[in-house]
Design a protein around this nucleic acid. Structure first.
Lengths: 207, 207
DNA sequence: GCTTTGAGAGCACAACTGTTCACTGACTTT
DNA sequence: AAAGTCAGTGAACAGTTGTGCTCTCAAAGC
């Protein structure tokens, strides 16, 4: 078997990517449920009919965008959290890393923030599934730390979800704030995270 | 001067409300940026032209919906938080009250959750302004409690924002979960809130 | 009682939408 | 070298969209 793909399939992937890119750009100023199929093909430089060779409709395209945005982020969770250093430092670094990711590819994160509660059910479900995956990853990493001794799985998942939701919220806030407000958003996000982490360390204190 | 409004103005308000109601129902399965003006008037039983007597376009209608949903909630914050009882109890009661509100008028809260990060700038701004107002109210109430001695205004606002964001997130989760998953969502929301509150009580412990 | 006002109706317009169909021609397979 | 595949084209379809204009006729103001 050969790992090289034919030049035909390569071309197909290229137009598929052109469609995804065009859609993502258009979605910066509107939401998926108002995105027109023709609008996308026009921006991508293809005929409307060509669209159907790749996706059933705009909803399927949305699901593909979710995959593209969040699919590549798995495993990175570990890299963020498993780093050495004291918890305060590590926490600040996490927020900084998120901020850098968001400013590096704003359109992708804007899309996720927008469609997380958006009008297209399939896409909402896809995002929810991915985020649940992240929450589980975070919970897993947290669970293997000494600070989590005595925590049950349920509580770890709750905390993981809290961190993930906070991450998404921060990303969205960064996008709304623009470059000038970025520092302030990061500052507040760090304080919030610190408070949550503080609650974590005292979770088992209760009578 | 008279407080009674003419029957003409009353009729106008009535059709305006019909437009708002129709729009809200349509928005349950799509987002504002895809909501058609004609679609709304059709559902409301009016001609498209009549729409312009009330709103400039669908964006303006969206802003009015934000007002209708969140405008009436101000002051209720105090009622939730200022109640007597120990903090654990009070916290559980808050979540229960939110849950009851959301299930009582799901469409309104779904709209807010959806358009908070939606595609229409004017509406996003209107929601952000309202939520900032809530955060300030919460911060004000929290500031007047004995547990907040030594807190500065900035940290109180941070905490207020955290509570408000949590509230919105919970509302959205309740809507996505449906009736059968409601109990679980409430359970997790309470634990999250407890953890945040725990962090609050230890906020000033640090060296 | 007469005039003015303004909410809503009715019609028209050009522009755009998603989807279908038969077709082309470059690539792939044999 | 011939036969088959299939990504992308171009034209056509019936619906829908936002917005402009004129018109009506009941309520409001004098």
């Amino acid at each position: 078997m050969s790992h090289t793909i034919g030049i035909r399939q390569a071309q197909k992937l290229k137009t598929r990517q052109a469609l995804l890119d065009a859609a993502l750009e258009l979605l910066e100023h509107q939401s998926l449920s108002s995105l027109g199929l023709r609008e996308v093909t026009r921006a991508a430089g293809v005929t409307p009919t060509a669209f159907y060779r790749h996706f059933d409709g705009t909803a399927a395209l949305g699901v593909a965008l979710v995959e593209e945005t969040l699919g590549s982020l798995h495993g990175m969770i570990g890299a963020i959290l498993a780093d050495t250093g004291d918890s305060e430092e590590r926490l600040d670094r996490s927020v900084g890393l998120i901020a850098r990711h968001v400013t590096a590819q704003p359109a992708h994160f804007r899309f996720i923030a927008r469609e997380q509660h958006g009008g297209v059910g399939q896409v909402r479900a896809a995002i929810a599934a991915q985020l649940r995956g992240f929450a589980e990853e975070v919970a897993h990493v947290l669970g293997s730390e000494p600070e989590s001794a005595g925590w049950d799985r349920d509580d770890l998942l709750m905390l993981g979800g809290l961190y993930v939701d906070h991450m998404v919220l921060t990303a969205s806030a960064l996008l709304d704030a623009g470059p000038e407000g970025e520092r302030e958003v990061v500052r507040v996000a760090r304080r919030r995270l610190r408070l949550v982490t503080l609650g974590r360390t005292h979770w088992l204190d209760r009578p």
